[in-house]
Amino acid sequence: MPSTDASANAGTVPVTDLCTAASPGARECRIAPATGAGADSEDTLDLHLPDELVALFAEGAAAAGERKPGTTGTATPPSLLATGEDLLDRVADWGPISTPAGALHLVPVRIERDLSIISRWMNDPAVAAFWGLEGPRNAIEEHLRSQLSGDGRSVPCLGMLDGTPMSYWEIYRADLDPLARYYAARPHDTGVHLLIGAVGDRGCGLGGTLLRAVVDLMLDKRPACARIVAEPDIRNTPSVAAFLSAGFRFSVEVDLPTKRAALMVRDRSLRHLL
């Protein structure tokens, strides 16, 4: 995952950034600008950590040299990750979805095919200000490979709108992510990060439109997931506005290691009301 925000460090959570980056083939925006939305500053989250996250913390402690009583110091991997369970319900099989802007398909990243365009987007100053992944391709490649070669708790995808690559997405298990240390995570909480790559798609409500469609898809494909979360930088007002327009509610401000974030939540139970 990218860093908790504008800067990206391994092991932290990146901001969900709706800044757009320069991209060849940017299309004329096909939807009207989004209107504003209200925000709810209250939350009623359960104050406990999921068993899966506790197991992951135990694994990390063992890796750092701590031992369990009666062992030789070699940790047993958490059972969840040892079973080969798909942690995100086969994102690659979700298929295209219809949106007011066209047909959107989240296609898992392939380094050899997608590194060039993702690198170009990440090196746009407007994007770099929040993602912090600007620089040589090998640094961006390392970020992508860390997810592609991991246990499946995060899946980086290219967003294809009517067959044209125009956005970068990360779908991830928020309850198994370092983000869960900073809010009352529930089992199967799922997070989303979005980067709109085409400069022509900026400022016309496209981010909110695509977010709403993708989150509906996530809730359809992940029946165990009760809510979708995101944590944009509180200063990134276009991003926060896009989440509000996509049916998210503002929950609370969270101090993450490299930013102050707005924790945004979209509840399954409120799906047809917001």
Rank of each mutant, 00 (worst) to 15 (best):
S245P: 03
G191H: 06
T20E: 07
L244F: 09
R67T: 14
T99H: 04
A101C: 06
T71Y: 09
L219A: 14
T71C: 07
R30H: 11
R90L: 09
R173D: 00
S269W: 15
S98T: 14
R235G: 05
T44A: 10
L88I: 10
L210H: 10
I171Q: 03
P78E: 05
R90N: 13
V229W: 04
D216M: 08
T209M: 03
T74N: 09
L211E: 03
H272Y: 13
I97M: 09
G25M: 11
G73V: 02
V229C: 02
A21L: 09
R145W: 10
G36H: 07
R271W: 10
A22S: 05
A126N: 02
A184M: 13
A103C: 11
E52K: 14
A32C: 02
E134N: 05
A10K: 09
Q147F: 04
G200A: 01
E66N: 00
A246Q: 02
L273P: 01
C225F: 07
H272P: 00
D175V: 12
Y182C: 03
T237G: 00
T237L: 14
S167K: 10
A21S: 14
V54Q: 02
H188R: 06
A180R: 02
L161I: 13
R202G: 04
A101F: 04
L179W: 03
R145M: 13
H48F: 12
S251F: 02
L211N: 05
S239K: 02
T190P: 06
I117K: 03
A198F: 06
A55R: 01
A82F: 12
R227A: 01
M160F: 12
T76I: 13
A34I: 06
E112W: 05
R67D: 14
R145A: 04
V13T: 11
G207K: 07
Y168E: 05
A34M: 11
V13W: 03
P69A: 03
L18Q: 12
N9T: 11
F130N: 05
D220M: 08
L49I: 15
L104K: 04
